[in-house]
Measured scan of single mutants.
Amino acid sequence: TIDDAFRAIERAIQAENEGRYREALKHFLDGGEMIVTAAEKEASQKVRNLLLHKGKEVLEWAEHLAEWILE
């Protein structure tokens, strides 16, 4: 659900702030994927587009974090 997705993102932010970057990455990926999944089930085109945009933002952040971890 969207609530689960945002809880995962909150955990990711907390982990990132505490320097637990790999854990943060996992939570960002989980949250982003949950948002995209919820968007695919959404009946309203406007809400679907907003959710897809937010999911994409979260997944892009996860990608940047992963690249930073690997440096």
Rank of each mutant, 00 (worst) to 15 (best):
E71D: 09
E23T: 04
L51D: 01
L50M: 09
L59I: 04
E63G: 09
V47K: 06
I2L: 14
A8P: 00
Q45G: 11
E71T: 12
K41R: 13
R7C: 08
L52D: 02
L50C: 15
E16R: 11
A39Q: 04
Q45C: 14
K26N: 03
L52N: 03
H64F: 07
A15P: 01
E23V: 04
W61M: 07
F28L: 13
K26P: 02
E23S: 02
T1M: 12
L50H: 11
L59W: 05
H64W: 12
F28V: 03
V47M: 13
I35G: 03
K56M: 07
Q14Y: 05
Q14G: 02
D30T: 14
G32A: 15
G55T: 05
E63F: 12
H64A: 11
R22A: 09
V47Y: 08
H27D: 04
A12I: 03
E42P: 02
G19Y: 03
G31R: 04
G19E: 02
T1G: 10
G19K: 08
I69A: 01
W61P: 00
I13N: 01
V47E: 04
H27S: 04
D3V: 11
R22W: 09
L65Q: 01
G31E: 01
E10N: 07
E23F: 02
K56T: 04
H53T: 12
K56P: 02
F28W: 12
I13F: 07
G55D: 02
I13M: 05
L65S: 01
Q14K: 06
K41P: 03
H53R: 13
T37A: 14
L52V: 05
L25C: 05
L50Y: 15
R22D: 08
L51Y: 04
A24V: 03
I13T: 02
F6R: 05
A8I: 14
T1R: 07
K56N: 07
A15C: 12
E67L: 12
L50Q: 13
L52K: 07
E42W: 11
A39F: 10
M34N: 02
L59M: 06
A24S: 03
E71S: 12
R20P: 01
K46F: 13
N17T: 09
E42H: 08
I35D: 01
L59T: 02
E18R: 09
E67I: 13
V36Y: 09
R48Y: 09
V47L: 10
I69V: 04
G19H: 05
R11Y: 10
A39I: 10
I69H: 06
G31W: 09
H64R: 13
R20S: 04
A62M: 07
E57P: 03
L59E: 02
S44T: 11
L59A: 05
L51I: 03
E33W: 14
